[in-house]
Nucleic acid binder design. Structure first.
Length: 616
DNA sequence: AAAAAAC
């Protein structure tokens, strides 16, 4: 918990990066030739220095985008056997030879065994909660989950990590994370990704999506053939995988997770996001990067400075993908993915993950994908039987006192009079500040996170909340998606969002990893456009729908952006909607209004009304 | 209309 990225960076700054990738000789004018950025594949990095590692096979080096063949596609599928633990000099898959050094092997390569152990921080943080039922994932909650896949030749799911052959080092880390067996989304998504296929995956909040895209990426990089990244100036780095997320804190979190998964695999993970000094991030990049986790703005900056090139990208993952492709983000994402030097779909491997996936966003997203598999993993009806959802009718003017009542009751029921962690969502940044102020005045220790606060303040607020120091966090939607905050007992929608998908993500901050949670929403006339969708959602989640809400729902306009189509799944592959698009070859006609999509007609998959989302 | 995301 203690270790911020800055601390980590400070630690590692002391290290010597090995010769492998230390491309730059300080002076700009200094000769480039001897220290060309020769890429040393991860499986060679932990060797004894004598192993003469970084001599890549001559031929397959970088042969343009077409060499981007994804990890397992070529040889990987046939015998997914790890290369023998000795170094041979064959090229291609297995060519690197040598499996990644075991736990004890801390020599050679660039890090020389000084890799910070990412597991230690966690263990300490957990103790603060002395909670016995806390470790691991409650898998019982994930039994009987319906799964829908579509696309050609879908690889079958696996039941255990053991049968996936991710490699020793990664398996060790999986054990250290106490992941006993894969969650449903992992069972399906990992074989798909290892099979080299593009993927659009919808899975409930808190169900392990991060690992689902990290494992195949790490494994693929480890087993991938050595490539030489083209020198384009010594200061440019060439990550092999790019993971984008919509908020800085989520990028930080993904980075922390990915660091655990890649511990002692030789795979290097770097994070870059705005609001923090860029210099440390640049230094981190110079020390080598295989997986870059980033927010879009900072990444564009790095690309424009030519400090990062996407030319060698083999894996692209968009977390909260529907968010990344909505109006606010889409141009930036398009720029990054389509207008820089990233290999095109079909060459790179692309994975999109979210708990929600509106149809029109699916349509947009298909631009970034090639012959992809659609995967929806969800409990019947809803994301979250684990979350008890309550809706209360509260006038604007009564919201504060109502919240106070909830907090008082909660404190009374709490263990040792301690306030359980409560996450309060509001609509605006100003509203967040003023509610925080009011709560503090009234004796409730609260803090706030929103986009008008400095990055330092944001991170401090989150830490303080996580630790229980400040058990009430008032947040805008910056905290709605992806953040994994253990022990959040209660999510309060003080102001309801306008979009039901945002509601799904917000309440998903509780009830994670199979644990139970509570979500309370304050509803009034201002939220009438959400009534129908909210009532439907709650009904599908087997929640008690107040009669007044049902009446509201019946009264309000049925359609609107928030209307989901029914069915077992929150979402379906948009390619399967409509009458004439069953085949896999013609789904691009989807954009054509004559094809049954996109018209103003009443199809569930249409543009305007009938927008559907996946959740859970 | 608001939120997020670079300097």
């Amino acid at each position: 918990m203690r270790t911020s990225w800055a601390d980590l960076a400070a630690n590692s700054a002391a290290e010597n990066s090995g010769p492998a990738f230390s491309a730059n000789n300080a002076g700009t004018g200094s000769t480039v030739a001897p220290s060309r950025p020769v890429y040393v594949p991860p499986h060679l990095r932990n060797r004894q220095p004598s192993a003469e590692a970084p001599v890549p096979a001559p031929a397959p080096a970088y042969s343009g985008p077409s060499s981007g063949s994804v990890g397992s596609s070529a040889a990987g599928n046939s015998g997914s056997r790890w290369p023998a633990p000795r170094n041979d000099h064959r090229s291609g898959y297995g060519g690197g030879g040598g499996r990644p050094g075991g736990w004890g092997n801390r020599s050679g390569g660039w890090d020389r065994g000084r890799e910070v152990n990412p597991f230690e921080e966690e263990d300490n943080a957990e103790e603060a909660f002395n909670e016995q039922e806390n470790t691991g994932i409650n898998f019982d909650a994930y039994e009987d989950i319906p799964v829908e896949t579509s696309g050609e030749n879908v690889p079958p799911p696996v039941n255990t990590f053991a049968e996936i052959d991710l490699g020793d080092a990664l398996n060790q880390n999986i054990r250290r994370c106490k992941y006993v067996k894969p969650t449903p989304v992992q069972r399906h998504a990992i074989p798909i990704s290892l099979g080299g296929r593009d993927l659009m995956a919808c899975a409930q909040t808190g169900s392990g999506k991060t690992a689902a895209f990290c494992f195949p990426i790490i494994s693929g990089i480890m087993r991938g053939q050595p490539v030489q990244r083209p020198p384009r100036g010594v200061r440019t780095v060439y990550p092999l995988a790019l993971v984008l997320s919509p908020t800085r804190e989520l990028s930080m979190q993904i980075h922390e997770e990915a660091r655990k998964f890649s511990f002692q695999t030789g795979v290097k993970v770097v994070v870059a996001y705005g609001g923090a000094p860029i210099n440390q991030q640049l230094r981190d990049l110079e020390r080598g990067v295989d997986i870059l986790v980033a927010t879009p703005g900072r990444l564009v900056d790095l690309l424009e400075r030519a400090r990062v090139s996407l030319q060698m990208i083999r894996y692209l993952a968009l977390d909260e993908a529907d968010r990344m492709l909505d109006m606010g983000f889409e141009p930036q994402i398009r720029k990054i993915v389509e207008q820089m030097d990233m290999p095109p779909p079909g060459v790179r491997q692309t994975m999109l993950f979210s708990a929600t996936f509106p149809k029109e966003i699916q349509r947009l997203a298909s631009d970034f994908l090639s012959n992809y598999i659609f995967l929806a993993v969800g409990r019947v009806g809803s994301s979250t039987d684990l979350i008890v959802q309550r809706v209360e009718y509260v006038q604007e003017s009564d919201k504060r006192s109502h919240l106070m009542d909830l907090l008082h009751a909660q404190r009374a029921n709490g263990v040792q009079g301690k306030q359980a962690l409560t996450l309060v969502f509001v609509e605006t940044k100003k509203g967040a500040d003023s509610l925080e102020h009011w709560l503090c005045l009234n004796g409730f220790p609260a803090t706030t996170i929103h986009g008008d606060r400095s990055q330092q303040e944001r991170e401090l607020a989150l830490r303080s909340f996580k630790s229980g120091n400040t058990p009430i966090l008032v947040a805008t939607d910056v905290a709605a998606r992806g953040l994994d905050i253990p022990h959040v007992a209660h999510v309060v929608n003080f102001d309801l969002p306008n979009d039901i998908d945002d509601y799904v993500h917000r309440i998903g901050r509780t009830g994670r990893a199979g644990k139970k949670g509570l979500a309370t929403a304050f509803f009034n006339d201002n939220n009438s456009s959400l009534a129908r969708a909210l009532a439907d959602l709650m009904q599908e989640a087997n929640q008690e729908v107040p009669a007044w809400l049902s009446r509201y729902a019946a009264r309000s306009y049925g359609g609107g952006r928030n209307r989901r189509s029914g069915g077992r799944f929150g979402s379906r592959d948009f390619r399967r909607e409509g009458s004439f698009n069953r085949g896999s070859s013609d789904y691009y006609s989807a954009g054509n209004s004559s094809g049954g999509y996109g018209g103003s007609g009443g199809y569930a998959g249409g543009y305007g009304p009938g927008v559907t989302s996946a959740w859970d």
